[in-house]
């Protein structure tokens, strides 16, 4: 999850964050002293936990940086960028989860990730958030193929199409990035279309990317069948 970024970029965002935070500070200050001190443990820049701090924070929390739990935490914090937690985000996250230390936080996150498995609307929100979170473009309108693939594996590890789709993204040449619409439709695709694609209907206005993916899967499965068939044939003679 942690990614290093050019420092200029970082400072500008943190400064922006700081400004917002300054306004909010008076009302937030008192109740969150515990969370604030936690924040101060990890912050490595002014009012912001940078990539190194995040790694340490995850380690202390007992989660992998690339785990669904950290994604959920980022979601709850409303983090705008991977690898960074601003003070405002950090405190907001603790507030909304109702936690003050690492142990309760860990428990919260574990139970939350279990709950999300059965709460489709909430999960959709998390999924929607994950797009903006993974996007490294300022406009948050697209994510590159690489980031999209790893995010998909993280958030939909058991999706019926995830493995194939990631593989398809890796091999195709046409798309360099994925837009929001494609991203959101893939969740619905994973939810509604069976793993054998038998109920897929190409007239149903799926984005072209998904049409092409289905095409690709169908073709390659035919190819596999053929191979299988010729192998069998070879065995006979």
């Amino acid at each position: 999850m942690a990614r290093s970024k050019s420092s200029t970029n970082t400072t500008t965002t943190s400064r922006k964050r700081k400004n917002i935070e300054d306004k909010e500070e008076p009302s937030l200050k008192k109740p969150f002293t515990q969370a604030e001190s936690l924040f101060n443990n990890y912050k490595d820049e002014v009012e912001c936990i940078g990539p190194d701090g995040v790694v340490n924070f995850c380690k202390d929390l007992g989660f992998d940086c690339d785990s669904i739990h950290i994604l959920i935490l980022a979601w709850k914090m409303g983090a705008s960028k991977q690898g960074y937690f601003t003070k405002g985000e950090f405190l907001k996250g603790f507030e909304s989860l109702g936690c003050y230390d690492l142990t309760t936080l860990k428990q919260q996150l574990l139970s939350l990730s279990d709950k999300l498995k059965n709460d489709s609307p909430k999960f959709s929100e998390l999924y929607k958030f994950s797009f903006a979170f993974a996007s490294e473009v300022d406009s948050k309108k697209s994510i590159d193929i690489q980031a999209a693939s790893s995010m998909l594996q993280l958030i939909l590890p058991d999706g019926p199409h995830t493995v194939n789709f990631v593989e398809f993204l890796r091999t195709q040449q046409q798309y360099k990035s994925i837009n929001r619409d494609q991203w959101l439709c893939f969740l619905e695709f994973s939810k509604t279309v069976k793993s054998d694609l038998s109920n897929y209907d190409e007239s149903e206005a799926w984005p072209l990317l998904i049409d092409e993916f289905v095409e690709h899967v169908k073709e390659s499965s035919i190819a596999v069948n053929k191979e299988f068939y010729t192998e069998k044939k070879d065995d006979r003679y």
């Binding site: 309108k141 697209s142 149903e204 206005a205 799926w206 984005p207 072209l208 049409d211």
Partner: peptide
């Protein structure tokens, strides 16, 4: 029709259109 679909997607991306929240179609 595929090209038309592509244009629709491009318009969605540029926020001239959006998919309905209830029905993707």
């Amino acid at each position: 029709p595929i090209i038309v679909k592509k244009r629709i997607e491009s318009l969605i991306e540029r926020e001239y259109l959006e998919r309905s929240k209830q029905d993707r179609k």
